[in-house]
């Protein structure tokens, strides 16, 4: 889709300029945009592919910024996609290029309240950083749920859930890292005449730094906890082992006490005694109860 929104932003001189939205463009649309804007078509194509690309490119006639926008799979879900978004600054236009719609762009690039170009870029970065922080908080909360399951877990599914959380945090960390580098590279290009604007830039940089530190901390925590999680799961299984082994020991006692009275040898008065069965079985039950109590006291018969 190739959409043009008239007067969506302002140049440094306060002149209104258009926003050109390239959303999952067809080959013809891409060719048309490349010819009209003077940007090489292979360059635009590569930006749509999932290949490494520089976050900030300065070429003759245009500036290109590459961003990664996190997008929730569903509301209140902690799973997300990372959507590549390219912003091209060409004379007369601000072009956005993406395969999937980035919802907040329509709010930011509003012809009703147009912002200046660089202020707009910072606003977009700011908005993306806010999303990263929100996502990292949601992902972090998932850890609480995993820890609840961990108490009873005997299988590694819970570890796999934790590993997925770890992967998602890494994706967020890499996205934030890209934003941080982009902001750093943008610095020489930003207007230096407005103290207010520079303050806004510094604020964005500090917020981004804080967001990264937050994600880093979350990730370092889960990284160091993952080994402990595995041990907890293994321990739960080992507790069952311990319980079973105690049970087997208890089940083995009757093999030798009544077994002693079951030998095919001369057993003396035992075969003729009417109370021998009750005496031996009574003794057996007593031994079982005492052993069972000892096992319980030392924790061998406890599951947790």
């Amino acid at each position: 889709m190739l959409k043009r929104v008239a007067g969506a932003f302002l140049t440094g001189n306060g002149r209104r300029r258009d926003w050109l939205q390239l959303l999952a463009p067809s080959k013809e649309e891409l060719e048309q945009a490349a010819n009209g804007l003077g940007v090489p078509e292979p360059f635009l194509l590569r930006r749509l592919e999932d290949k490494p690309a520089r976050p900030f490119v300065r070429e003759k006639g245009f500036l290109a910024l590459q961003l990664t926008v996190p997008h929730h799979h569903a509301p209140h879900s902690s799973t997300f996609d990372l959507l590549p978004l390219t912003i091209l600054l060409v004379p007369g236009y601000l072009v956005t290029l993406s395969q999937e719609p980035v919802r907040f762009l329509e709010d930011v690039l509003n012809p009703g309240a147009p912002r200046k170009r660089w202020e707009l870029v910072l606003q977009i970065i700011h908005e993306i950083a806010r999303r990263y922080v929100r996502m990292s908080r949601d992902v972090g909360q998932e850890l609480g749920q995993i820890e609840k399951e961990l108490r009873r877990a005997q299988r590694v599914n819970v570890i796999y859930s934790a590993l997925e959380v770890n992967d998602r945090l890494l994706d967020l960390d890499l996205g934030l890292l890209q934003l941080e580098h982009l902001l750093e590279e943008l610095r020489p290009w930003l207007p230096k005449d407005s103290a207010e604007f520079l303050e806004y830039y510094e604020d964005s940089r500090i917020e981004l730094r804080q967001a990264r530190e937050q994600v880093d901390t979350e990730q370092e925590t889960i990284n160091s906890l993952l080994n402990a999680y595995t041990y907890v799961v293994n321990n739960n299984v080992n507790n069952i082992f311990k319980f079973m082994a105690a049970l087997i020991i208890l089940a083995t006692i009757p093999l030798f006490i009544p077994g002693a009275a079951a030998m095919n040898v001369d057993l003396g008065p035992l075969p003729n005694s009417h109370s021998a069965f009750y005496l031996i079985t009574g003794g057996l039950i007593l031994v079982e109860v005492i052993t069972g109590l000892i096992f319980y006291r030392i924790g061998w018969l406890r599951l947790r």
Binding site: I240, T252, L255, I280
Partner: peptide, 26 residues
Amino acid sequence: MKIMTLWLALLMIPIALIMPFHMETH
């Protein structure tokens, strides 16, 4: 190993319970 131990314990229970009836007594 847990499943194997579990089967071992389950097989041991009937043996243990039946064992007193092997005794050479009344």
